[in-house]
Computed example of a mutant assay.
Amino acid sequence: MVEFDVVDLPEADHVEEGETAPDFERPLVDTELWRNRTLADLTDDGPVLLVAHPMDGAFQSTYIWNEIRDRNWSDDVELIGIGISTPYEHKTLLEERGVDARLFTDPSAEVLDEYGIAQDLDGMAGVTDARPAVFLIDEDRTVQYAWVGDEHPSFPEYDEVEDALDRHVR
């Protein structure tokens, strides 16, 4: 069994329920290609579940996307991820995990910072990553549900996300 320390993270000043989710444009990756898209492009078609995850290959990302895949959330809502990894790494993550989602790539962490979920990696000068977070965003870009990790490692409250999907989407 792998052992690791659980570390409390500083309080995050993140986007909250009832607020308007900031719009942004970044490459959106699927298993075949990527192209620049905005969040507004996606919410125009219906609600979006935006899942921020640490860099691809990190054990947290593996567990988060495995759980989301197993819960079939993509059957109910447009499932979109965001992280700092490159389009090539995102494509590999989607293929290896078998996830029916698309992932925004944000290597500069500017979008993560705008959402209040960027965090500096301990011991890695100049490296910023995503704090795990989940935002359910409706057609008007109003955040209907927000969860942001407060320790490392942390994982979404999956049952709470499903309750939010039941209230706002299903």
Rank of each mutant, 00 (worst) to 15 (best):
M1C: 09
M1S: 15
V2P: 14
V2Q: 11
E3R: 02
F4K: 09
D5K: 10
V6N: 06
D8R: 15
P10V: 06
A12G: 02
A12F: 04
A12M: 06
D13C: 00
H14K: 12
V15Q: 12
G18L: 09
T20K: 14
F24I: 06
E25W: 07
R26G: 01
V29T: 07
D30H: 06
T31F: 10
T31C: 01
E32W: 05
E32K: 12
E32I: 04
E32L: 07
N36T: 15
R37K: 11
A40L: 04
A40N: 04
D41N: 07
L42Q: 10
T43Y: 01
V48G: 09
A52D: 03
A52M: 02
H53M: 09
P54F: 07
P54D: 00
P54N: 05
M55C: 04
G57D: 05
F59H: 15
F59Q: 14
T62I: 05
T62A: 03
Y63H: 14
N66Y: 02
N66D: 10
S74C: 06
S74M: 00
D76I: 07
L79M: 03
L79E: 00
G81H: 12
I82W: 11
G83C: 08
G83Y: 02
S85D: 00
S85H: 02
P87Q: 06
Y88W: 12
H90G: 04
K91I: 01
T92G: 01
L94E: 01
R97D: 12
R97N: 14
R97E: 13
A101G: 10
R102N: 03
L103E: 14
F104L: 07
F104T: 01
T105G: 15
T105N: 10
S108G: 15
V111K: 00
L112Q: 05
D113W: 10
Y115H: 04
G116V: 02
G116I: 07
I117P: 06
A118K: 12
L121P: 05
L121K: 05
G123A: 06
M124N: 13
G126M: 10
G126V: 08
R131H: 00
R131A: 05
A133V: 06
V134R: 04
F135M: 08
F135E: 07
F135N: 03
F135S: 01
F135W: 10
I137L: 03
D138F: 02
D138V: 07
E139I: 07
D140M: 09
V143F: 09
Q144H: 10
W147F: 05
V148Q: 11
E151T: 14
F155E: 10
F155T: 11
F155Q: 10
P156M: 04
E157V: 00
Y158M: 00
Y158E: 07
Y158D: 11
Y158I: 09
E160Y: 06
E162S: 13
E162R: 14
D163Y: 08
A164C: 08
D166R: 14
R167W: 03
